[in-house]
Design a protein around this nucleic acid. Structure first.
Length: 121
DNA sequence: CGTGTGACCGGCG
DNA sequence: ACGCCGGCCACAC
């Protein structure tokens, strides 16, 4: 669905968005990652903003992208505002076993999942 | 077609 | 130590 026509043609080169969404979907349950990590994995570590922008249309992407597993460098749920409800992101994370306090992931560095380190190409 | 923006990150003052 | 500003790429208007 979603005839938004990202690339108009079925070119083999997938959009940057598709790549980001795919990586986010690869995040194991109970783990979180950062925009910078995803950007770095995609080869654009400097452009972490693009990852965030990709998440902006995450709700339009299919299948649903677990954007709740993506947080900023500080482990804070920066993108929770863009969810259906401001607390939706926190609830989803808690359901996955991730404890969230003050919109921040508890023991973030411990449950941090680096695609570059785990996937290693 | 050109400009602006965007859920960030990192460096510099 | 804190605050500000620049930067990168892609999409929407």
């Amino acid at each position: 669905m979603t005839k938004t026509t990202i690339t108009t043609n079925k070119n083999k080169s997938y959009s940057f968005f598709e790549n980001v969404h795919e990586v986010v979907r690869l995040i194991p349950k109970g783990r979180v990652t950062t925009y910078g990590a995803i950007a770095k994995y995609l080869g654009v570590k400097m452009s972490a903003r693009m990852v965030g922008w990709a998440m902006n249309i995450a709700h339009t992407a299919t299948p649903k992208v677990p954007a709740q597993r993506v947080v900023n460098r500080n482990g804070m749920l920066t993108g929770k505002i863009h969810f259906s409800t401001p607390t939706k992101m926190e609830e989803l994370l808690k359901k996955e076993g991730i404890n969230v306090i003050e919109d921040k992931v508890v023991d973030f560095k411990n449950i941090f999942w680096d695609p570059s380190a785990e996937l290693k190409w």
